[in-house]
Each structure stands twice: as C-alpha cells, then as structure tokens.
Amino acid sequence: MENRKLTCIECPKGCNLSVDIENCRVMKVEGHKCPKGEPYAVSEIENPQRVLTAVVLSKGLSLKMIPVRTDKPIPKAKIIDAALAIKKLQITKPVKAGDVIAGNFMGLDVNLIATRDMT
C-alpha cells in the first residue's frame, strides 16, 4: 500500500490530505475538513480533472474577448489540447453567461460555456 500527500484545491482552505492507495485505488482519505475532500482525493488519484477557463475571440461584439469555461471538469491530461482548441474558436453572436459555446467539447462530454454577457 502507498500513502500520498495531496493538497485539496476544492476551496481556498487547501486542506492537507493523506491518501492511502492500493492498486491505483483510493482506500482511505484523512485530513479533510469538509465532505468535498474525499471525492477530490479519489478523483485526483484515479482520474485527475480540472475545470478549464480561457477566452474566445469575438467578432463584431462589444468586447474583443469572451471568457469561457468548461461546465464540468475535464481530464488534466487534456487541458493543454483543449486550450489550443479554444484559441481556434470565434463567437459572432451576442451571448449570455451560461450559453453553450461548444457542446460536447472535444468529445469530452462537457460543454464550453460563456461566463460573461456580451452584446
């Protein structure tokens, strides 16, 4: 059995977690001060994921760049490729925060959504 130290990033507290791992599976999590800690540790060990935020170029709208994010975390290993893909997008119609910019983004079963209203 392996023990790994993690820092929970679910909130600004940054709890220090102690995680027992066996055969790439999380057996026990300690050190978290809220219920978010345990699922974070499991995900971080078994399939680390992050929400990706970025900006998309607009055309003909009031501001040049529209901030976006994935509506769910995506695998950490896909972050760089996803950021590259976002740089190729362009938005030409007014959006509201929450509007889907790209559905099932990169086939990752997440939507890329706008995070700011723009006319």
Binding site: T53, A54, R69
Partner: peptide
C-alpha cells in the same frame, strides 16, 4: 473580477464554483 476568468468565486455565497465574470454578473 472581469479579468479574473478563473474559477474559485462564489463557493461560500452561492455554493457554486464560478469564474470572476459570472460572480460579478
């Protein structure tokens, strides 16, 4: 907040993980 496009806002107030522009919005 408009340029803080990263998440981490609203965890306490809205119980959601929002970006700066969403939180401000």
């Amino acid at each position: 907040l408009n340029q803080c496009i990263h998440t981490g806002f609203g965890l306490g107030y809205f119980k959601e993980n929002l970006t700066g522009p969403e939180y401000a919005g």
